[in-house]
Simulated scan of single mutants.
Amino acid sequence: MSFYLILLGIFLLLALFGVSVFNKFIKNKNQVKDAWSNIDVALKRRYDLIPNLVETVKGYASHEKDTLERVIQARNAAMSVPSDDINAQIKAENQLQQTLRSIFALGEAYPDLKANLNFIDLQKKLSEIEEALERSRRFYNSTVRENNTYGESFPGVIFAGMMPYKSFNYFEVDAAERENVKVDFS
């Protein structure tokens, strides 16, 4: 009789441990999704601001059509990525960020544009959005770190294949974004 109670106790402990591990996987995944939703809100604000920025720049730098088209294409590409594909969204956002840098390089090259109040206001709003994105990215990356560490360390690594574990990519700056923007007017 006591043997069966011991077996039952061991079984119950293992079941509770399994439920605990399962819940941790779910909690981590939901935290990553929540953190990404904060980024998603800021990205939506950025997407809404970009057409106004491009239109303002068009008036001063109409012969920079290629640069402006690349920005719009990058914006449209980023907006078209499925919202549940976080890793693809990160890649698209890095490309958009790179093209946005080229618009501000144009601002430096055209003093009249740089002095335009609308351009200054849009630049300020975009800067505020970028600051919010930076905070959201840090929070997102910390939740990704927690999720990935749990799934890749003991005991999570043992159960990761059997449970709803998903590894997420960090939202990192790509190599192209670390370089200075090259503006050539020749």
Rank of each mutant, 00 (worst) to 15 (best):
M1V: 05
M1N: 10
S2Q: 13
S2K: 14
S2C: 02
F3V: 04
Y4K: 11
L5W: 07
L5E: 10
I6C: 01
L8T: 12
G9C: 11
I10V: 13
F11M: 13
F11I: 14
F11R: 09
L16S: 12
F17M: 13
S20A: 09
S20L: 11
V21P: 04
F22N: 09
N23E: 14
N23I: 12
K24G: 04
F25K: 08
I26E: 10
I26W: 03
K27N: 12
Q31A: 09
K33E: 14
A35I: 03
S37D: 10
N38M: 03
N38A: 09
I39T: 02
I39F: 01
V41D: 05
A42P: 00
L43P: 05
R45E: 11
R46K: 06
Y47M: 12
Y47E: 00
D48I: 01
D48V: 01
P51N: 11
N52P: 04
L53P: 05
V54M: 00
E55M: 08
E55Q: 06
T56F: 12
T56C: 15
K58S: 06
G59Q: 07
Y60S: 05
Y60V: 04
A61S: 09
S62M: 00
H63C: 03
E64C: 06
K65M: 12
D66I: 03
T67V: 15
L68H: 06
E69S: 13
V71I: 13
I72R: 01
R75C: 02
A77T: 14
A78T: 09
M79F: 00
S83A: 10
S83K: 12
D85K: 15
D85G: 01
N87R: 11
N87Y: 05
K91E: 15
K91M: 02
A92Y: 05
E93H: 10
N94A: 09
T99C: 00
L100N: 08
R101T: 02
S102A: 15
I103P: 10
L106R: 11
L106K: 07
A109G: 13
A109M: 12
Y110L: 01
A115M: 08
N118Q: 15
F119N: 07
D121M: 13
D121A: 15
K124F: 05
E128M: 13
E128I: 13
E130F: 04
E131S: 15
A132W: 03
A132Y: 01
A132S: 02
L133G: 10
E134A: 15
R138T: 11
Y140R: 11
N141G: 04
V144Y: 00
E146I: 07
N147K: 10
N148D: 03
Y150W: 07
E152R: 14
F154V: 15
P155F: 08
P155C: 06
G156T: 14
F159R: 08
A160S: 15
G161F: 03
G161Y: 02
M162H: 12
M163F: 06
P164T: 09
Y165Q: 08
S167N: 07
F168H: 11
D174M: 09
A176Y: 00
E177M: 07
E179K: 12
N180W: 00
N180P: 06
N180H: 01
K182L: 03
K182V: 09
D184M: 00
D184A: 03
D184F: 05
S186A: 00
S186Q: 05
